Simulated assay, not measured.
Amino acid sequence: MFTLYTPQTANKTLPGVKRMFADIVAKKNKVVVLQQELQGIVDSVSDFERFIKKKQDLNSAVTELYRAIEILEETGVSIKSVDEGLLDFPSKRFDEEVWLCWKAGEDEIKFWHNKDEGFMGRKPLESTGVIEP
């Protein structure tokens, strides 16, 4: 689904987005642990049965991770970095498409940046013409 967000609508949806993002982080961490466990099995020259079972567990975890990402991005929110906790909400500033920017740990969306800029190009919302309701 494509949605243009205002700062108000983005902040209204933020609690649910935060919950979905926390689920993604947990699923990603599970994938990392399973990858490490699988590598340990390979390094220990363990039997095929143990390897195949762990590989199937990893495959399932990766599938769950990607499905969780799809569910969040179906809201129109774009994940820029799971590791850094960066999410962008599509918006408009006058006639220009821009991103409203949120970083994990922030209580609300307070920044925006142009489409060709990243996190380093963030600007405070107070000084913008980002669309209002």
Score class of each variant (00 low, 15 high):
residue 20 M to W: 00
residue 126 E to Q: 12
residue 19 R to N: 11
residue 114 N to Y: 13
residue 84 E to P: 01
residue 92 K to W: 05
residue 63 T to W: 00
residue 89 F to H: 09
residue 102 W to R: 11
residue 26 A to F: 03
residue 87 L to K: 04
residue 43 D to I: 00
residue 13 T to A: 09
residue 39 Q to H: 10
residue 83 D to H: 10
residue 61 A to L: 07
residue 126 E to M: 06
residue 83 D to V: 09
residue 55 K to Y: 09
residue 120 M to C: 00
residue 44 S to K: 02
residue 122 R to M: 09
residue 6 T to P: 13
residue 73 E to R: 07
residue 16 G to I: 07
residue 29 N to A: 14
residue 121 G to W: 06
residue 2 F to A: 12
residue 74 E to D: 15
residue 32 V to D: 14
residue 18 K to E: 12
residue 123 K to I: 11
residue 68 A to P: 03
residue 41 I to C: 04
residue 68 A to F: 01
residue 84 E to T: 14
residue 38 L to V: 02
residue 126 E to G: 14
residue 71 I to R: 08
residue 10 A to K: 01
residue 114 N to P: 00
residue 34 L to Q: 07
residue 114 N to M: 05
residue 114 N to K: 13
residue 118 G to A: 02
residue 107 D to Y: 03
residue 67 R to I: 13
residue 106 E to L: 02
residue 113 H to L: 04
residue 41 I to W: 01
residue 64 E to I: 01
residue 21 F to P: 13
residue 65 L to M: 11
residue 30 K to V: 09
residue 22 A to I: 00
residue 51 F to N: 03
residue 123 K to N: 12
residue 112 W to N: 03
residue 85 G to I: 03
residue 13 T to F: 00
residue 105 G to V: 02
residue 21 F to S: 08
residue 35 Q to N: 11
residue 123 K to H: 12
residue 79 I to R: 05
residue 33 V to Q: 12
residue 59 N to K: 11
residue 36 Q to I: 02
residue 47 D to S: 12
residue 86 L to C: 08
residue 80 K to Y: 09
residue 58 L to V: 05
residue 96 E to K: 15
residue 105 G to I: 01
residue 35 Q to K: 10
residue 122 R to L: 10
residue 41 I to D: 08
residue 84 E to I: 13
residue 40 G to D: 13
residue 70 E to W: 04
residue 87 L to H: 08
residue 131 I to T: 13
residue 100 L to M: 02
residue 93 R to T: 12
residue 26 A to I: 06
residue 117 E to A: 08
residue 126 E to N: 12
residue 16 G to L: 09
residue 106 E to W: 01
residue 4 L to Y: 10
